[in-house]
């Protein structure tokens, strides 16, 4: 005990109840002050759960260039989708927002006719799927998901392993506008058997 503090008189028994009451008040006080302090930071931390998605808006049409660039019978190509993007506080023109796998299937083209257009995002865990001509299939380099050129999931992949992808590749809507192929970009949740939009 420090030598400049006089020792207190012993507590009177009558004070015990008062002490308990004050203790409760102190606990309550701590809880209130603590909660008030944490309220703001908790909002920032948990906000994304209640906020809509801020990403490139789903349903964004992206022009992929003249239809004549895609020939019937040619193998599928992987095209980078570029669009104006909003990322939190910043906007960016012509940012690469994703990729699509495109194959022309018929001479006659139009709204959702004549092409196979698939999202290049692997339904397994989101790596980038590419076309492999040695397999004549779409293939994901990360865990080896494999798909027919139609996008259909194959049961066993190269090497006889089961396909890790829970579903087929995700088709994207497209249209032909002024002789240009325009794709509607949508992001789908990965790792689910059912196809649902991200954030939906």
């Amino acid at each position: 005990m420090a030598d400049d503090v006089p020792s207190p008189p012993p507590e009177a028994p009558a004070d015990a109840g008062r002490r308990r009451l004050l203790a409760r008040a102190a606990i309550g006080g701590c809880a209130c002050v603590g909660a008030a302090t944490l309220l703001g930071p908790a909002g920032v931390a948990l906000g994304p759960l209640f906020q809509g998605d801020d990403g490139p808006k789903d349903g964004l049409p992206v022009a992929l260039g003249p239809v004549s660039a895609f020939k019937v019978g040619a193998p599928p190509v992987r095209v980078v989708l570029r669009a104006d993007e909003r990322d939190a506080w910043s906007t960016r023109k012509n940012a690469p927002i994703g990729s699509a796998l495109v194959q022309r299937t018929a001479e006659n083209v139009g709204r959702n006719v004549g092409f196979t257009v698939l999202s290049g995002v692997c339904p397994h865990l989101g790596c980038a799927v590419d076309y492999r001509d040695d397999l004549s299939r779409f293939h994901c380099p990360c865990h080896g998901s494999s798909f027919e050129t139609s996008g259909a999931r194959v049961e066993t992949t190269e090497g006889g392993k089961p396909n890790p992808s829970p579903r087929d590749l995700d088709p994207l809507d497209y249209d032909v506008v002024n002789d240009r192929l325009v794709v509607t970009w949508v992001r789908y949740a990965t790792a689910t058997a059912e196809r649902k939009k991200v954030g939906a």
Binding site: A45, L46, G47, P48, L49, Q51, D53, D54, G55, D87, A88, W89, S90, R187, V198, G199
Partner: peptide, 15 residues
């Protein structure tokens, strides 16, 4: 939920 909280949304950008 954990992923959304870590990323601050669904994308791998600023937030």
């Amino acid at each position: 939920i954990l992923k959304t909280l870590m990323l601050g949304g669904q994308r791998y950008g600023s937030e």
